[in-house]
């Protein structure tokens, strides 16, 4: 739904721009194409990785490992999985819902979803092109720390761990 909205907005913006100043619009399109072209290999690599991981790791195994053992360990595993994966919201949240329904603690689910959203190991090759290797690593480690604090807060809120 929101993608449709973006396409419509883009179409309107592009038409308006073309009516006001065709020259500038062509320049904009050429810049867009250049950016897109230079990032395409990285995007494709990232997608290839994601599709491999998602297809080769069965969902049942994920539920099994995250539902077992101590909360802290399970959260750690969940955070690693979340950092290493990348999936669109329409895949990630149904999966998170399944985890929660199968008795995986909210804290563990939070560790998974927040790292999934904030920490990007697979987007590293893309991010590095903009931020450089060092800042990319620091930024992701800080995001990981934030994600872990959020998951602890969720655990405390839902009474899964005491302070």
């Amino acid at each position: 739904m929101d993608t449709v909205l973006v396409v419509v907005i883009t179409a309107i913006a592009l038409t308006t721009s073309a009516v006001i100043d065709p020259q500038k619009t062509i320049l904009a399109l050429r810049r867009a194409l250049k950016r897109f072209g230079s990032l395409l290999p990285s995007f494709l690599t990232m997608l290839a990785f994601v599709s491999l991981v998602l297809a080769l790791v069965p969902q049942a195994a994920i539920v099994y490992y995250l539902g077992q053992g101590r909360l802290v360990e399970a959260s750690g595993i969940a955070a690693v999985l979340g950092s290493l994966s990348l999936m669109p919201g329409f895949v990630a949240f149904p999966l998170a819902g399944i985890l929660a329904q199968n008795g995986v603690a909210k804290m563990v689910v939070a560790a998974f979803t927040t790292t999934l959203m904030m920490v990007g190991v697979l987007t590293y090759p893309i991010e590095k092109q903009y931020f450089g290797a060092k800042v990319t690593i620091v930024r992701n480690l800080l995001s990981l720390a934030v994600a872990m604090l959020v998951s602890v807060a969720i655990g405390v809120y839902f009474g899964e761990i005491g302070l």
């Binding site: 993608t3 904009a28 810049r31 950016r35 995007f43 994601v50 080769l56």
Partner: peptide, 30 residues
Amino acid sequence: RTAKSLLLFLREMLIILPPAFILIGLFEVW
């Protein structure tokens, strides 16, 4: 299965990315 999930993601990205880059381009010139 790998190929199928690739196609699923690729479809999403190919819908999202071109508009996103066009908007960035328009932003840069305007």
